[in-house]
Design a protein around this nucleic acid. Structure first.
Length: 801
DNA sequence: AGCCTTCGGAGGTCG
DNA sequence: TCCGAAGGCT
């Protein structure tokens, strides 16, 4: 165990190279603190150095540290950096995701939380199928109450910290939804499963309703550090408050200090419940003493940074922050207007090849970002045609693949035969003659008897019953067979007995699946041997001196024969019951791991490949060169978001995140037409272009290609299209206001996508423009008269609303 | 039970 | 246009 010794602590190498703000944050005296950490300001470094500094100077012991992140990746990085920084046993600290830590709490105090120790975790797929099952059983009209919407509703309630009885319901529909919510809860409880929201809510309630437990953790965690605080939802905030202290006379009486690190300008997850308002609430309710802004950016050249600052200054509700850099201006931000989405992709590929060939950029240091996944297609195909290696982020993750979910379902049934979700997933997979009809009978029987499907099997008569019996027997036998086997052994045996591998052998395209199943064995193997399990093994609550909880008030007077929990943990010791010392089996630990950490979602890692991802997925990453495509009204900002101000501001923050990913080069582009949902859409360039500083931009004039050859103009007068009103609801603009006199090429004020009115043909849409001056012609599509080329010097066209 | 057709919907996503 | 879900047909 690490023993702090301030006198012999090596002086300051830890603090070397920190700027004054970072240094101040790292060495803050006790008290709650809010660190506003701009993009690329060394946020993670500050967090980890803070922890190291606290330990080194005797302000905290490892057991007194709680550090919370949102993603496993962030948690891992923190652990890795910390390990490199200090010869400290990281195991004493609680570092992890909100859900990971909640999992620990609930396992350790499962009795108080009213859960089986080996409870299983439902991911969103499982949750949805559980709800569908419930709807069938209670004859819920799935037209009126789509299961997806119900799942959304339930998750939302939980994120707000609301149980069914707390949800206000004034009309019949909401009362019904609340009723279903309650039924769903009962079903989960009966089956011993929890969803992600429940993990948070249940552990919040555990702390709230059990004074000794709450007191224990409050006393233990002297320092609570929260990463990406702007992404916390209401419930996570409430959870933090429970951990930090009790409220009395409107003030939080706190034992420890909370350091919240975040950036309101990078809050892009309101749609999944994040409340930026938590930052203001935190300052008020915790009476925050220290607020520090980290505005020094170590990532980007100033043209990029100025662009980001300029853009985000158009948002009104900000805490206020301005990034600065000591690096030079760097290259200008390049802006390209393409005729079509295809041309845009081609341009990107051309630029990428030049960056690699002429400027020596590594492909993996080049990223193409887009607002929505649908955009990746064209870009992928162009990269593919040009034989440029690329990698797409997103999509299915390892533990979410169907074959893996099937395998996990078998494993879960070994642990808990009453897990109906898993039961239904594999009862007839591989096919064993158990059809929908049979399952209906079985489910009816189970509901009548109020028991699990497993227990109701004997109630089904005839051949169907026999088939069911065979399935149950198969699982029971497997359970017997695997007693005492290693995790690897269990999985191999399961793959064999279940017939999964056999099934996929006969299926075309089954080879990949078999490969994945083999990979599952490997994953289990490395889980047992490597740090994964070893680190999780510290779920055991230790008090602030690293002492085991068996000597703390929580478990005093309980089992005196409980094993001493402070002895070195064996790798398979798993998570330990705070009362009895009972450990989690490797199998349950692995299943938990699979649910909490669904694995990477990137294809072929490692290669030097161009990175493709959504802007959301890019948060927290950085690249030498960044392309942001599809900067068009309706796409970015997205239609669904740009109607109200909050939505639009979040879109702008999203754009801010995108821009700040770039270190050296930034490329922006938009296309005049884009294939969307099988139709060509004519898009106006994004209003965000007008919110960037012109002096940092360099518009690249497209080559004369007979299409869209007019020089784009970055200045005023862009017509905001799709956001206003209908699909093509253009605002009325006269030629004059739409085209500054300085721009010859746009003197006719037309561009592809505009809606125009012709005295004879009526309303139409401009498809393309060719030529200059008197030769200028426009291709216009009129719904009643078809597509026509019109000489602009002759035809009288007006832009319409 | 498995294949085929039809229909609807189409935004971002971590645990 | 393309994808998945759901329902019908063999």
């Amino acid at each position: 165990m690490y023993s702090p010794d301030p006198l012999s602590a090596p002086a300051a190498p830890l603090l070397q190279g920190l700027n004054p703000e970072q240094l101040a944050a790292v060495t803050l005296p006790s008290g709650h603190a809010l660190i506003l950490a701009g993009a690329g300001s060394g946020k993670t470094r500050v967090l980890t150095t803070r922890i190291a500094w606290l330990l080194q100077n005797g302000h905290a012991t490892p057991g007194g540290i709680l550090a919370v992140t949102f993603t496993n990746k962030a948690a891992k990085e923190m652990v890795a950096r910390l390990t490199a920084m200090l010869p400290v046993n990281v195991r004493g600290m609680w570092i992890g995701t909100f859900h990971g830590l909640c999992n620990r709490l609930l396992r350790a105090h499962h009795k108080a939380a009213n859960l089986p120790q080996a409870f299983q975790i439902l991911d969103t797929q499982d949750q949805l199928s559980a709800i569908k099952r419930l709807c069938k059983q209670f004859n819920v009209d799935e037209e009126r109450f789509p299961p997806k919407q119900l799942a959304y509703f339930i998750a939302n309630c939980k994120e707000e910290g609301l149980r069914p009885r707390d949800v206000p319901a004034h009309d019949a529909d909401s009362r019904k939804k609340v009723e279903i919510y309650a039924l769903y809860e009962a079903q989960c409880q009966r089956e011993g499963v929890v969803d992600f929201g429940e993990l948070m809510l249940r552990s919040y309630e555990l702390l709230r309703d059990h004074d000794p437990i709450r007191a224990h953790y409050q006393r233990r965690f002297r320092h609570i550090l929260v990463d990406e605080f702007q992404d916390t939802n209401r419930l996570q905030y409430l959870w933090l408050k429970q951990m930090a202290g009790d409220e009395a006379e409107g003030r939080l009486q706190s034992h420890g200090c909370v350091m919240a690190v975040g950036d309101d300008d990078q809050s892009i997850y309101a749609f999944r419940g994040a409340r930026v308002g938590n930052m203001a609430d935190f300052v008020r309710e915790f009476a925050v003493q220290h607020q520090i802004k980290l505005e020094q950016n170590y990532r980007s050249y100033s043209n990029i940074l100025d662009s980001a600052n300029h853009l985000i200054s158009h948002n009104s509700r900000r805490l206020g922050k301005n990034l600065r850099t000591t690096q030079g201006a760097g290259e200008p931000v390049r802006v390209y207007e393409a005729a079509t989405d295809l041309a845009e992709a081609q341009w990107m590929v051309d630029e990428i090849r030049q960056l690699v060939k002429n400027d020596g950029f590594a492909r993996k240091e080049i990223a193409v970002l887009y607002r929505s996944n649908a955009q990746s297609r064209v870009i992928e195909s162009q990269l593919f045609n040009a034989s440029v290696p690329y990698r797409v982020y997103g999509g299915l993750r390892f533990f979410e693949r169907a074959e893996i979910k099937h395998a996990l379902a078998y494993l879960r049934l070994l642990e808990n035969p009453h897990d109906d979700t898993s039961f239904l997933r594999v009862v007839n997979f591989p096919p064993r003659g158990i059809g929908a009809r049979t399952l209906e009978v079985l489910q009816d029987a189970a509901r009548q008897a109020g028991c699990s499907l497993h227990d109701a099997v004997s109630a089904v008569p005839g051949k169907a019953g026999a088939n069911l019996g065979a399935f149950v027997a198969l699982v029971d036998v497997l359970r017997e067979q695997t007693q005492g086997l290693s995790l690897r052994g269990i999985i191999e045996q399961m793959l064999e007995s279940s017939g999964l591998v056999e099934h996929f052998r006969t299926e075309k395209e089954g080879a990949d699946r078999i490969e994945n199943l083999q990979e599952l064995v490997n994953a289990a193997e490395s889980f047992v041997t490597q740090e994964g399990f070893g680190r999780d093994a510290v779920a055991l609550p230790l008090d602030e001196h690293g002492q085991s909880l068996t000597q703390s008030p929580v478990s005093q007077g309980l089992d005196p024969d409980a094993p001493r929990l402070d002895e070195p943990l064996r790798p398979t010791a798993g998570i330990i019951d705070a009362d009895t010392g009972e450990t989690l089996s490797p199998l349950v630990a692995f299943l938990t791991h699979a649910a909490l950490e669904a694995g990477d979602n990137q294809a072929q890692a490692g290669q030097d490949a161009v990175q493709l991802m959504t802007v959301h997925a890019s948060k927290g990453l950085e690249f030498d060169a960044v392309f942001i495509g599809g900067l068009e009204e309706g796409l970015f900002p997205h239609d669904n978001a740009s109607s109200d101000r909050d939505g639009l501001e979040e879109e702008r923050r999203l754009m801010y995140v995108a821009i700040t990913r770039a270190r050296q080069r930034l490329y922006l582009s938009h296309a005049q037409t884009r294939l969307l949902h099988g139709q060509t859409r004519y898009n106006v360039k994004s209003r965000f272009f007008d919110e960037l500083p012109e002096e940092a931009l360099k518009w690249i004039t497209p080559k004369q290609q007979g299409f869209g050859s007019f020089a784009p103009n970055s200045g005023a007068g862009s017509a905001y299209g799709a956001s206003a009103g209908g699909r093509f609801g253009f605002k009325s603009e006269t030629f004059a206001s739409a085209s500054p006199a300085s721009s010859k090429a746009t003197s006719h004020g037309l561009r592809a996508g505009l809606a125009v009115f012709h005295t004879k043909f009526g309303e139409g849409k401009v498809l393309a423009i060719e030529g200059q001056g008197d030769d200028a012609r426009a291709q216009v599509h009129f719904p009643r008269h078809g597509t026509k080329w019109l000489a602009l010097s002759v035809a009288k066209l007006t832009v319409v609303e």
